[in-house]
C-alpha cells in the first residue's frame, strides 16, 4: 500500500516535471484556453461591473453624459492617429504619386476594438487579458495599440480571450525607429519603476548617429517576433542615451506613453482579410 502510494507520488511528480520542462505549446494553450474560457464570463462581468461603478461615480461627480462621448471620441482618436501615422510615413518618403496611390487604396490594417478584462494573476509577467480571441479574428504576435501609442503584442490567443504582452515586459521586443534621426533599433521592455510606470530600452542603435533626449521613437514596420506591426506607431520618447559596454552600439532609455489599466480598451491591429 505504502509502496503504491510512493509510486503514485513519483508518477505525479514526473508528470508535473514533464509538463513544466517539456515544451508542448499546443497542449498547454488548449489547457489554458479551457481555464480562461471558464473564467472569461466572470472576468467580463467583473470588469463590466467595475466599469459601470466608475462611470456612475464619474456621473455623480458632474461629468455625466460625457463618459459615453469620451469613449466614442477616444475610439475615433485612435483611428485618426493611426491614419495620421500612415500619412507621416508617406510624407517622409516624399513620393507624391505613391501617396496618391495609397490614398486610393483602403487601409491595409483593420483595428479590432477590445476591452481589457483582467491583469496577470501572479505579477511575474507584465500582461493584460483582452476579451476577444480567435473567434473575433485576433491572432498571435499582432500589435496592440491605444490612443497613446503602442501597448504591446498579442501572445497566447485562445478562442475567447488573448494575452497582451505589454511593452514593459522584458520578453516584448519590437523593431523601432527614432523619427528625427531615422535610425533603427530594437525596443525591449525593462519592467516598471517603483511608482508602477513602465520602462523600456531601445538597443542596437548605430553609435555614430546622434540621439537626443526627447526624440520620438516609433515602430519601424519591420517584422517583429514573426508578427506584423504597422509602421509609425508611437512608442515613447527618449529619456537617456548611453554607450553600450561593447562600444559598438548605443542604447536609449524610453518612457512608453501608453499605459494600460483594467478599464481601458485597446485595439488589436489585424489583417483585414483575416478578420473577415
Amino acid at each position: 500500500m505504502l509502496r503504491n502510494k510512493k509510486l503514485l507520488y513519483a508518477a505525479a511528480i514526473g508528470l508535473v516535471l514533464i509538463a513544466v520542462f517539456v515544451p508542448l505549446p499546443s497542449l498547454t494553450l488548449r489547457a489554458k484556453g479551457a481555464a480562461r474560457g471558464v473564467m472569461a464570463p466572470a472576468e467580463r462581468g467583473a470588469s463590466g461591473l467595475w466599469q459601470r461603478l466608475s462611470e456612475a461615480t464619474a456621473a455623480i461627480r458632474g461629468i455625466g453624459g460625457a463618459v459615453e462621448k469620451n469613449r466614442e471620441l477616444s475610439h475615433e482618436l485612435v483611428r485618426a492617429q493611426s491614419e495620421l501615422n500612415r500619412l507621416r510615413e508617406v510624407e517622409s518618403e516624399n513620393l507624391r504619386l505613391r501617396r496618391a496611390l495609397k490614398f486610393s487604396q483602403a487601409s491595409p490594417h483593420e483595428m479590432i476594438p477590445c476591452d481589457v478584462v483582467s491583469r496577470d494573476i501572479s505579477g511575474w509577467w507584465n500582461t493584460v487579458r483582452i476579451g476577444k480571441g480567435l473567434r473575433a479574428g485576433v491572432r498571435a504576435n499582432r500589435a496592440v495599440i491605444s490612443p497613446d501609442g503602442l501597448v504591446g503584442r498579442t501572445t497566447e490567443v485562445t478562442p475567447l480571450t488573448s494575452e497582451v504582452l505589454l511593452l514593459s515586459d522584458p520578453a516584448c521586443r519590437v523593431s523601432a525607429r527614432v523619427s528625427r534621426a531615422n535610425v533603427f533599433g530594437l525596443v525591449r521592455g525593462a519592467g516598471n519603476t517603483l511608482k508602477g510606470h513602465p520602462k523600456a530600452r531601445m538597443e542596437f542603435i548605430n553609435k555614430d548617429v546622434e540621439i537626443k533626449v526627447g526624440d520620438e521613437v516609433v515602430t519601424s514596420g519591420l517584422s517583429s517576433a514573426g508578427g506584423e506591426f504597422p509602421p509609425g506607431v508611437h512608442i515613447g520618447y527618449v529619456e537617456n542615451v548611453y554607450q553600450d559596454d561593447s562600444g559598438l552600439f548605443q542604447y536609449a532609455e524610453i518612457i512608453p506613453r501608453a499605459t494600460v489599466g483594467l478599464l481601458d480598451y485597446v485595439f488589436v491591429v489585424s489583417d483585414a482579410k483575416e478578420a473577415e
Binding site: P23, A31, R36, D120, I121, W124, W125, E163
Partner: peptide, 9 residues
C-alpha cells in the same frame, strides 16, 4: 497556471 502566462508548472 491556466490564467498565468508561460508554461504550466
Amino acid at each position: 497556471d491556466g490564467l498565468e502566462m508561460g508554461t504550466f508548472g
